[in-house]
Simulated assay, not measured.
Amino acid sequence: MKAFAASGRPLAANCRGPWALVEADVLRGKTLIAYPSLRTDVTNAGAKALEAVTMVLLAPSTRAASLARPNHP
């Protein structure tokens, strides 16, 4: 994971994946979007955690979305 992170390619993680990035110590100096329950951990790992709704175009017909529902922290 450290070699991949050092390559400069974009990183993506969902569900419990961000904790793997925290444990691998690859978030320092990065800015990322994090679910509210993860923000303290990624901030303590040296990352800047933002709250936002995102839609990223991965391929012409494939999209990935991240949304934190306000009433489901």
Rank of each mutant, 00 (worst) to 15 (best):
N44K: 11
E51H: 14
K48C: 06
T54H: 13
R39E: 13
A45I: 06
E23Y: 06
L21I: 04
L32W: 07
A12T: 07
T31M: 05
R9S: 08
T43K: 10
R16N: 05
R16T: 05
L38T: 04
G46A: 07
P18F: 03
C15E: 02
T40P: 01
R16Q: 09
N14I: 13
K48L: 10
W19K: 04
P36A: 12
P18E: 08
I33F: 12
R39P: 03
A24L: 01
V53H: 14
L50E: 15
A52S: 12
A24H: 03
R28K: 14
A49S: 15
G17Y: 00
L11E: 08
V22A: 01
A49I: 09
A24V: 04
A24C: 04
A12E: 04
A13P: 00
R16W: 00
A49Q: 10
T40D: 13
A47N: 07
C15G: 02
A20S: 10
Y35L: 12
A6S: 10
Y35A: 11
P36S: 14
E23T: 06
T43N: 10
L21P: 09
D25T: 11
L11G: 06
A34F: 01
R39K: 15
A45V: 06
D25I: 07
S7T: 08
A34N: 05
L57Q: 09
D41I: 00
L58G: 01
W19M: 07
E51T: 15
N14R: 13
L11N: 09
K30G: 01
M55V: 13
A5T: 08
R39D: 09
I33N: 13
S7Q: 09
L21F: 08
A47E: 06
A49H: 08
G8D: 06
A13V: 00
A12H: 09
